[in-house]
Amino acid sequence: MSPDPRSFDHAEGAAPQAGARRPRTGSGPAARLLTVLYALVITPIATALIAYGGGGWMRIFQMRGYVADPLADLLTGRAGVQIVAGLGLGLLLLASVVATGIASSAGLLVVGVMGLFSLVVAAVPSLLFSIYRATPDGVPLEILDGFAYGLPLVLHTVMGGLGMALVIARRRPGPHLVASLAGLVVVPVMLLLGAGLVFGGLGHGALMAVRMFDTQTSPLVVALLALGALLLWLGAAASRWSPYALLLPVIVLLGASLAFAVPSLPLPPGIWSDPTSLAAASFLLTGGGVATAVILLVHTVVLAFVRHRSRRRLRGPGPTVPPAARPAGTAAATG
Rank of each mutant, 00 (worst) to 15 (best):
L248I: 13
R21A: 15
L155K: 05
L296K: 02
I271K: 04
S310R: 06
V41T: 15
Y52M: 14
G196S: 12
P29M: 02
A148P: 02
S180F: 05
S180C: 06
S218K: 01
V290G: 06
M63N: 14
I143W: 01
L177W: 10
R24Q: 14
L37W: 02
V158F: 02
A291V: 12
R240E: 11
L71D: 11
L37G: 14
A46R: 04
D137Y: 07
S218L: 01
Q17Y: 06
G183S: 12
V294H: 02
H156N: 15
A15I: 01
A206V: 00
G174L: 14
L91G: 07
S180A: 15
W272V: 09
D4C: 10
A46W: 05
A103F: 05
P323G: 05
H176S: 12
L253W: 06
L166H: 06
L234P: 00
W57P: 02
G316F: 11
L284N: 09
L141D: 14
A332C: 01
S2C: 10
A328F: 14
L162Q: 03
A99T: 09
T215M: 08
Y66Q: 14
D9A: 13
T25R: 13
P243W: 03
L40E: 04
I143L: 03
G160Y: 02
V290Y: 05
R172C: 09
A165N: 06
V210M: 12
S257A: 10
L253Q: 09
Q82D: 13
G138Q: 09
L234W: 01
T217H: 08
V290S: 11
T300M: 15
A245I: 13
A72I: 11
Q82E: 15
L303E: 10
L93C: 12
S118M: 02
G255N: 07
